[in-house]
């Protein structure tokens, strides 16, 4: 392709529409910034509620992203490489949480893994698992986040040149070696993108978490839950401060990681 990167004359209609659309994203940010109690921000940020939620969200969102990769990459590989009956249905089921309202997902998790759920009683007897715990939060986050990773990685697996894998196989590599030494490096950029998407989705997770894991400061109250609960109270300042943190973290990560991983444009 020899086309210039920047068109010499941008079509006016596209620019106008993009500006109108852009205000939809900029205005709420401005609204949040004007509501923020800037002068007291320091003391609010060191509030127990804020610190507890920040730590919990960091731990659970990273854990969910890692678990999503651990199980999501194999799922993507199976969906991409194996021919089997019901593959379309399987693909729909593992990406369902992207479309499902998270609160429905949370309720469904409770029906399965709550102590009166399908296997919840057994699980609790054997492992002591309770939804009202950090593990409950991680599980809910992984449930909603993993589909983003699966979709991204499966797309990459379908798109790469299969001749490299075939060549390695003819040279005597086992299937697992091919996957580790050829396939995985080839899809690395997409895997990173999937990890980032899954992590971002976890960080913002609300509905499934509060339905499945409840809301307790220091144990299951992540940043979004802390915002929701405190926005309802007479003292809204912690909620506003946390909202600001969420925006700052998300922007920083999205800007810096995008540039590092895909090259600045």
């Amino acid at each position: 392709m020899t086309a210039p990167r920047t068109p010499s004359r941008a079509p006016r209609a596209l620019v106008v529409l993009s500006l109108i659309g852009g205000t939809l994203f900029v205005l709420p940010l401005l609204g949040l910034l004007t509501e923020t109690p800037w002068s007291r921000l320091g003391s609010i940020l060191s509030d127990d509620i804020v610190v507890d939620a920040l730590v919990l969200s960091a731990v659970t969102s990273i854990a969910a992203a890692v678990l999503s990769a651990l199980f999501g990459v194999p799922i993507a590989w199976v969906l991409s490489r194996l021919q089997f009956r019901g593959r379309a249905i399987a693909r729909a089921i593992v990406t369902l949480p992207m479309v499902l309202p998270p609160v429905v997902g949370g309720a469904a998790l409770l029906f399965a893994l709550g102590r009166n759920g399908l296997i919840g009683g057994f699980l609790n007897d054997v492992t002591g698992f309770s939804p009202f715990s950090v593990w409950g939060v991680i599980l809910a986050n992984t449930f909603v986040a993993m589909p983003f990773l699966i979709l991204t990685v499966e797309g990459a697996l379908n798109g790469i040149d299969r001749r490299h894998e075939a060549a390695a196989q003819t040279l005597g590599a086992t299937d697992l070696e091919v996957f580790r030494r050829i396939t995985l490096p080839m899809i690395a950029p997409s895997l990173k993108a999937g990890l980032l998407l899954a992590w971002a989705r976890s960080l913002g997770e609300f509905g499934a978490t509060i339905t499945f894991a409840g809301n307790l400061q220091g144990r299951t109250q992540t940043l979004p839950l802390a915002v929701f609960v405190n926005l309802q109270s007479a003292d809204r300042e912690p909620a506003l401060a946390i909202s600001l943190i969420l925006v700052a973290i998300s922007l920083t990560v999205l800007v810096s990681l995008r540039d590092r991983w895909w090259g600045a444009r």
Partner: peptide, 19 residues
């Protein structure tokens, strides 16, 4: 405590479900 629900009805639902 194990949870502080955002409103009384979501608390009631978790008790009613035996959770």
């Amino acid at each position: 405590l194990d949870t502080e629900e955002p409103d009384v009805r979501s608390l009631l639902a978790k008790v009613a479900g035996g959770e």
